[in-house]
């Protein structure tokens, strides 16, 4: 669950220590000094939203007196030039163009601390829905990895070849390297998908009796 819950915990810890978010980039956060515990943070996944949906959502967030920061995560999408293909997204969100959607998969929300936990989704059905949306890219990536794995296995050709150090056409090394790389990436995806599934299962028991 880490990319979101981990970030949330970390940001709230910074806030408790008197640091307010100021600017968020691809790989960095900038903080400004503030009163300890003055702000609280929550992180939302918006990678499934179309550009138009995202803008509408951000407008609404502003109306609620909540500050937001956009942040990229990288997972399960192809980039071709300035277009990203996200097969797991909602209608209208599948093809991401650099204008609005690429690198805006996470939304960090910030508001004044009112002493109550800052939850983006406040009923169980919504929480489950949000977790399912987050699980989609991982599942998609796992399927893709399996397909590539089969391709490598049956065609016996590597996905890429080393121009740097493979002087002779050493297909076997390439196959091995592709396999190991895909394997590592898919293990992370499997773990994340499982974590999310467990969280969904935990909530599904409650949704039968509670809202």
């Amino acid at each position: 669950m880490n990319p979101i819950e981990g970030q949330e915990r970390w940001l709230n810890e910074q806030a408790r220590n008197g640091w307010k978010l100021f600017k968020v980039g691809r790989l960095f956060y900038e903080f400004k000094a503030s009163n300890p515990g003055e702000y609280q943070y929550a992180v939302d996944y918006i990678g499934n939203k179309s550009n138009q949906e995202r803008i509408k959502y951000e407008e609404f967030i502003s109306e609620m007196n909540i500050t937001y920061y956009e942040k990229p995560i990288k997972l399960g999408h192809f980039s071709v030039g300035k277009i990203k293909y996200r097969p797991f997204a909602d209608k209208g969100g599948k093809i991401a163009t650099s204008r609005g959607m690429i690198n805006r998969e996470l939304l960090i929300l910030e508001k004044k601390n009112d002493g109550k936990p800052f939850a983006i989704y406040s009923n169980i059905a919504d929480k489950i829905e949000a977790l399912k949306e987050r699980r989609k890219p991982y599942i998609y990536f796992i399927v893709l990895t399996l397909l590539m794995g089969f391709y490598i296995y049956y065609i016996r050709k590597p996905l890429f070849s080393y121009t740097l150090w493979s002087y002779q056409n050493d297909d076997f090394k390439g196959i091995l390297a592709s396999g190991v790389l895909l394997g590592l990436l898919s293990i992370i995806s499997v773990i994340r998908a499982l974590q999310l599934s467990l969280a969904i299962r935990g909530l599904s028991g409650t949704v039968k009796t509670h809202e």
Partner: peptide, 8 residues
């Protein structure tokens, strides 16, 4: 307390 995502 409604979360912003839920309210939206």
């Amino acid at each position: 307390v409604f979360g912003p995502g839920t309210l939206y």
